[in-house]
Amino acid sequence: MKLSLRINGAARQVEVDGDTPLLWVLREELGLLGTKFGCGAAFCGACTVLMGDVPVRSCSLPVSEVGDGAVTTIEGIAGREAMAVQRAWIAGDVPQCGYCQSGQIMGAIALLKATKRPTDSDIDQAMSGNLCRCATYVRIREAIHAAARDLEGPR
C-alpha cells in the first residue's frame, strides 16, 4: 500500500505491505539505519523512536497504524532535550558496543521531555525497557542526570 509518513519533520512517501513494522520501513525504504533491530517483539528497546514526544517500539508498530504521527529517529533529533542528551552521552562516553544506544538516547529524550529532573526511580521506570547487553547502565544513568542538570542551566 502507498503511505505518506511524517519522518524527522519531512513528508515521506512509501509503498510497502501494510503490516510491515515501522522499523523496517525506516531502515529499508528510507535508509534510516540508526534505529536498530534487536528482538522484534518490543522486549529490548533497540528500535525505539519518538512518536510526537512518546517513545514507541518501531519493531512492533505496523506502518499502516502510524498515520500522521510525527516520527523522530536518532537521525532527526533536535531541540533542547535532545541536544542535552546527546551531549551528555558523548561527554560520558556511554556506549560500548553501541548497538542499543540509539534506542537508549530516544528513551532518555522522551523521559526528559516528560520529567525535568528525573530521580533514579524515574530513570528505572522509564528506561527498563531498553536493554543493554554490555550493561552500560551506570553511564546511562549518569548521562541522564547530567543532561537534566544541563537543561536547568547555571544556577
Binding site: L33, G34, I74, G98, Q101
Partner: peptide
Amino acid sequence: LARLDTVAKCTGTAVFGIDVVVPGMLY
C-alpha cells in the same frame, strides 16, 4: 582518552553488520 567510536554510536551513524548496504541486495 575518550573512545574514538563514541560520536558515531551516539548519532546513529556507526555501521554495524546489520547496517551494510550493497547495491542490488536482497534479504
